[in-house]
Amino acid sequence: MTTTIPTAATAKPPATAPRKSIGRPGLYIVLVIAALFFLLPIYLLFATALKSPDAINLATTWRWPAALNWASFSDAWAKIGGNLGNSLFLAVVATVLAAMMGSLNGYALAKWKFRGANTVFALMLFGMFIPYQAVLIPLFQFIKALGLYGTIWGLILAHVVYGLPITTLIFRNFYADVPDALVEAATIDGAGFWQIYRRVIFPISIPGFVVVIIWEFTQVWNEFLFAATLTNTSAQPVTYALSQLAGGQAVSWNLPMAGAILAALPTLLVYILLGRYFVRGLLAGSVKG
């Protein structure tokens, strides 16, 4: 880490020249401008959500509402509250299933390497990158053939399966860091595949589970294409309901804005409270295949 910034000046005079030109005030100016870019949409989101429909006027878009209209939220809740419930159920069940299976897969792949394990793993991973448009029509037919079309369970099945590559990946890399000596010691004690998982691997998996659960929960919660094609009105998750709220003939923008806040809240909270793990999931998804 660059904790040497103050001393750098004394080390080499030429090095100070550019440093001064983008010195501390410059750094903060850059950061503030960047922060404005990221936060202005959020300001507008809240400012619009808290206006009453007739106070929304394009010319005064940026003004904070004179009177706060909290009713936007209850109105939005009335429209998408049920869908929030669907999303919660969907995300929790799909995440738990995908995480459990991913943990076992990762354990099997990392600690019991068999011939061709890497090839199998690479083939599994490909599933995480495919454009879902390329499987949409057969997926739809398959779910229908299972009799799950329109229900939340069809959607859960799709999310669990397409979530397997990433959960397996994260757990595999996580378990790869567990010293093989631990496993070997357990085998010498006569423990088999399942005992080792239960006694050695699972108890140290909590951070892995946190990363996977946060990542997968966010993914499932935010997904749209499957939501739009696999569910009926009564089982639709919140992303779809929100797109209806905003894409409809809504002139009163306070409603979709309040809806967007409600729909974003769960993942946003998870991110703010557990951001560290969120970033780890983010990095795990890309840096190492």
Partner: peptide, 16 residues
């Protein structure tokens, strides 16, 4: 601040 939009759905981002 720079990272929070990552946690949002594209639908939420798109609506905003």
């Amino acid at each position: 601040i720079f990272l929070f939009p990552m946690s949002l759905s594209f639908i939420v981002t798109g609506t905003i």
